[in-house]
Design a protein around this nucleic acid. Sequence first.
DNA 1: GCTCCCAGCGCG
DNA 2: AAAGCGCGCTGGGAGC
Length: 604
Amino acid sequence: MRFLEVSASASGGSHPTSVTTSTPKPKATPHAASELIGDRSSLGGIAELVRGAGAVALDIETYGERKGDGLDPWSGDIRLLALCVDGRQPWLLDLRTLGYDLGELKTALESVEIIAHNAKFDLLWLRVKCGLRAMRVFCTLVAARLLSAGTKPGNDLNKCLHRYLGVPPAPDHSRSDWGSMFLIDDQLAYAARDVAHLHELASTFWGEIERARLDVVADLEFALMPVIVEMEMAGIGVDKAKLREIEAKARASAASMASSLRNELGLPALNPSSPQQLLKALAGQGIEVADTNEDTLKAADDGKIIQIILAFRGAEKLAQQAKSLIECVKSDGRIHGRFDPTGTATGRFSSKDPNLQNIGRGELRSCFVPGAGNKLIVADYSQVELRAAAAIAGETKMIEAYRNGVDLHKQTAAEVLGKALNAVTKEDRQISKSANFGLLYGQSAPGLVRYAASSYGVKLELDQAEQIRRQFFRTYGSLRQWHGESRNKADAGAREVRTVMGRRRLIPETASEWERFTALVNTPVQGGCADGMKRALVMLAERLPAEAHLISTVHDEVLVEAPEVMAEQVRLIVQTTMVEAMAELFPQVPIEVEAGVCEHWGEK
DNA sequence: GCTCCCAGCGCG
DNA sequence: AAAGCGCGCTGGGAGC
């Protein structure tokens, strides 16, 4: 199958670590003797040995003022670069003495496979500080996560070394002071130990990956890693002044809502951000509710207080998000959020610092803008999870609709409500939209009522919802059959589920039958689409002109920044590449991508 | 003063 | 009997 070849050029298809079993294993000796290298004349020799080895284990230690958890290459510095080729003692390079120009060593590192635990972290720093562009990567953290997806065994290096190689845990010095004039022996021993076992760990992992038939998806993840490093380094431009305006406005609005709330309730000390206090205050007004979340409040709407509470929350959330975005802007005026391709159980990305995958769809998105002379290309898959589900279940009725260019939500409305296609109202379509997305993953009738209300503002009676649900599965019989099979597997105690690419999610022994069922129907769809998106990103990195950059991705959406003069050309590349990448995983169903050239993210 | 968990909510 | 899934961030509040 062609999709097996996606990473061929990037990761080489074969891993040196997997064929080194004939060469002597690294001697896991103590490393107290490791000394710091601060002399540039050593770099050439090290480069030569690295080049000859074909693969090098790598780890860095960083320092600088950290806000909260974070330390990033735009405010911090690399102190130590630890390298190790198989069978030799590690080298500890003092970059504070050597500087960031690695000379021949840079090109050597770019020509070999780099083995690291959480390689994306190290590679981002080395990319920003030293200009290093890794070509081939083996990340032992990614391997560990692919093997353990769906469970939480703890995948930090200590735990992996212990679990897979039986190496006893050692004290963690990663957060010690790496900026001081002299590093103590414990620090050096720690840095050396971390890289010393990586060849053996990678070799063991590759065996496990192949045994679990996760090699295809591992190759994809490894090929993706340098692409994500480039994306994080590029970052995304923001209009800071506009963000400040939004924050100020939202904050003022929240304050005014809060005070009118205190007035209405006669509670001058009320903190409307406290669900506890709110619950009590509402009870005082005769409004008895189980909790204060949005759906519950809407259901108990008195026409006055509830409205103010919701308005307060909306304004508060907006102010918060704007504020945290402003704080995330680095010295280059851009936001360099983190994307974690193996941050979820299903294979989707997670995103943090800031989370760029939950930015409100309102005015906030218009603050994300291209740099001078550039445009944004904003592209997203159209209803991709529904298409994937149709392909997986073999639901010809849906597939035919897509092939014929029929509006699927409208068709579902017509079928489910027993109307003619041209008699379907806007509200009918909205109901069907929530049915399509919710029922797909096992949503019940009461769940459908809630979902329709909160996501689409559609009021639905329970018996209506039950009717819709029945009719939905009567219409889409193959979908019902797929659910039935999944139900049977769940009842039989299924312990894993896979995407078409072979990505695996383990189902814990302790999972209930219901949890098994939802994992069984959800993962192939969500994870399968994630696989397709990741293939698209790798292919895009190869196809985009050098002046264009991937800058963000949100599950089914991609943002690219490109010079205005080539924006249209880039738009076309993005669109066709995304379609191609996904279609190869789900060839049964047409895949569609909408892509536009935009002045800001909110423009769609 | 710090750490941890929960409720609530933003997105796909 | 009843049940959509997947995330990260924030403030409140409890506990140390």
